[in-house]
Amino acid sequence: MDRWRALVWRFLFHRGKLAAVSALVQLVGVSKTFGDAAAVHAIDLSVERGKTTVLIGPSGCGKSTLLRLIIGLLQPDSGQIQFDGTQLRADKIDIVRRHVGYVIQEGGLFPHLTARGNILLMARHLGRPKNEMLARLSELCALTRFPENLLGRYPLELSGGQRQRVSLMRALMLSPELLLLDEPLGALDPLVRAALQKDLKEIFARLRQTALLVTHDLAEAAYLGDEIVLVNEGRIVQQGSLADLREKPASSFVSEFINAQRSLAVI
């Protein structure tokens, strides 16, 4: 099955390509405007293979819009989005989506399906063999520390943290090349949040997962991210490690943003 998946992936993204490209996703001059809020302007961004890239910035700055453009929920007005060096095609987007996991703030779990039903939804749709799916399910439960006996519960019977774990499992079910996370921990209380941050970091490391995470919490960004991308008013202000941002701020906004989120220790 993995070989099959790899073949499709090759076919879609490596056709005629000889040189390996290190960026899995590349945005070139991508713009999208609608009304006024959350627009993005001429964005250039690379998501490196095997790394966690974090998009951070004030709310309404356009960071979620970038994720929605990558997963094809929005079409760019101009610019290119490339997967593995090949431009994203609208008619192939459903196949691409199967190689991308997407987790949103409230989980986006379907209330009429059990945790198991949510996780297996897409695999069933693709007609994957039963025992293969069940094996993967156990694997994911272990990975995300989700008790298997809760798989029969409906989303409304789970806690917020459990729901996000289920949502993560659903996103990881088909072993995606890319994981998109849009403020996945935004609605959780601090203790649950801290536990999940730790687990996420472990999971990303163990899977060598390429991930693009959106958050407005600098500590979270610093803890999880290999690369931090600060976005403001639809433009990338600075990109680098937290140390880069702190020590060599590209503009006064960068310093302001970092200072506004100083930790308790600094106070």
Binding site: G72, L73, R97, R98, I104, F110, H125
Partner: peptide
Amino acid sequence: RALRESAIALGLSPAARLWQI
């Protein structure tokens, strides 16, 4: 809207979205 988009983002076909979601 978030749930509609989740169904799309999963890669479900339009028919599957209608019937299953």
